[in-house]
Design a protein around this nucleic acid. Structure first.
Lengths: 319, 319
DNA sequence: ACGATTTACGGAGACCGTAAGGATT
DNA sequence: AATCCTTACGGTCTCCGTAAATCGT
């Protein structure tokens, strides 16, 4: 197998028609170039250049060799360009998935930042619940996803990097009658329609322990909705109660159009993580995305902590 | 510049999906393959394979790399094939030139032998006088030629390899009246029409010294003809006298349809050589052709010597 | 004598194979 | 235990640069 480097040297030498200039252009010493060409000539068993002072030219054989060398060297430098692009994230695709909460909190911010920095990367984002995302991941439709991980942690094919947990809460309109009560518990909340995304078992289990089987049979309103925007609108326009985290509703909180219901059971926090296949190396784009995501997450935590420390919306626990 | 050998290794490994098998197929030890792949991954700054026992697969990056590697490796092995062909003379062109005498003596035999051995080489032969051949050579229309070299030897751009000299002679029909004379000189010959190819100066000079200026002004018949076949036919059908060497007329000599005129001045011998540009390396085909040519020349000399030693057609000297 | 190319020498790095060391099943 | 991959070590070969020699004008 002929080394690509030496072919490049042949091409440059043929263009320059002079060992010294070619060597300079190739960042080689001139004797080195001579020896390399000689070695190649010896290796292939035939003269490539006819040397005459000031009149260097290709032999018949050399012409043939140069024709091929041009192809090879060009393909090779194309590869190197693409490697550089790949590593510099100047091209490529990034398919990723996210649960509904990450989608409207950290991901929307991260995608914005990532796109500013690497505008040539085509991002395809899929918002779905953790179960469907898991399927997409196994089928390699997405490189990784961020979602509730409480039910995935035992899976041996997955590699899960936990994210900072965010406190969750119920929220409602500012003028909601439930807020008039001194203390509020789950049953109080359940007097009203609740708008919930697909819930993890740990949540369902909680409901099951808190509510007697008789009460369970009583029909209580329950709107399943994975879409945060919709949830917010419903909450604003009805007595329904939503569930969320700070960043999902921060605008409405600051507008004072909604309020956090002061009922904070310990389980109400996100257990989110970055989920990828153990066997699969992330693309540089994905790695970069994740590092931006981590910065965004940190920022979110700071904002969140700041908000809760300045308001009476204390939460039971955090982290 | 990424080494082509390692790209090949990536391709084989990707096909085999197993380091041990790939290493075997590549005639490498298995740890060496591991290290080479690792080194490449480190060099390009990114993982190429995701390794899992029994489940080796390409990363995104690896897929991109393999796409390019296939192009490069394929171009490279194409080159190596063509080099092998070139050196084995399994393809290519051979443009060569020759004077009229070599054309019908050694060259016709050599071309036959060469073509038997290297039937895929396309031969283009040009028959012309040494002057026109010289021009063709300078313009690189031919790689080399064989012809009279007495007037080219001083040329510093040429490299001339002399060939064995052949004795030249005048010849005529067996029943030609000139043969009745006891001794024959130039003037006797010049009583008849002479059929001559383009003559070198050394020949002209001889004529000039032998013939007085008065005699020169007398018009003597002189047919310029570079074509040996034509010359023979004219000699057979007239009293014209031809000039030639043994192999040109050996058939007619053996048929006893012509005879050599017993007049052998010392200068009448070929001064032929292989002529090429000093600056130009001969193609392998040309080199092979020349080595066959040399064998043929040796054979011709043997036949020639044998003939002259068995007949009364003694010649004055031999080169 | 001068410009261009080649040879000679010593050292740095690439690459190989053997042997031993994990890891996963 | 078996299979597959990786690490460690020591030796060879390639390739480099500097310095000196050779070639052709």
């Amino acid at each position: 197998m002929i080394n690509c480097r030496i072919l490049k040297q042949v091409l440059v030498l043929n263009k320059e028609k002079n060992f010294a200039r070619a060597a300079l252009s190739l960042h080689l010493s001139q004797p080195t170039l001579t020896r390399n060409i000689q070695a190649l000539e010896e290796k292939v068993g035939y003269k490539i250049f006819d040397r005459a002072p000031g009149n260097l030219k290709l032999t018949n054989f050399g012409q043939m060799l140069v024709r091929h060398a041009e192809k090879i060297v060009s393909a090779s430098s194309q590869l190197e360009n693409e490697i550089a692009q790949f590593l510099n994230l100047q091209a490529g695709h990034l398919n990723l998935g996210m649960g509904p909460f990450p989608a409207e909190t950290s991901f929307s911010r991260t995608i914005g930042l990532f796109n500013e920095q690497f505008s040539k990367i085509h991002i395809k984002s899929t918002v779905d619940n953790w179960e469907n995302l898991h399927t997409l991941l196994l089928n390699e439709k997405i490189e990784f996803f961020v979602a509730e991980t409480s039910e995935l942690e035992k899976n041996k094919y997955l590699e899960i990097t936990p994210l900072q947990s965010h406190p969750g809460f119920f929220y409602c309109r500012t003028d909601h009658p439930i807020l008039e009560k001194m203390t509020i518990n789950l049953k109080d909340c359940m007097q009203y329609s609740m708008i919930l995304p697909k819930l993890p078992k740990r949540f369902i289990n909680f409901l099951n322990t808190e509510i007697s089987s008789r009460e369970k049979q009583k029909e209580y309103a329950y709107i399943e909705c994975d879409n945060v925007g919709m949830t917010n609108k419903i909450v604003l326009n009805s007595l329904a109660i939503g569930i969320g985290v700070y960043d999902l509703v921060s605008n409405h909180l600051q507008d004072k159009r909604i309020k956090i219901i002061p009922f904070h059971p310990g389980f109400m926090k996100t257990i989110h993580g970055i989920v990828k296949l153990k066997s699969h190396t992330l693309s540089p784009a994905a790695q970069e995305f994740i590092s931006i995501l981590n910065l965004v997450e940190e920022e979110l935590c700071t904002e969140e902590t700041l908000y809760f420390s300045r308001t009476s919306d204390a939460v039971s626990e955090k982290g």
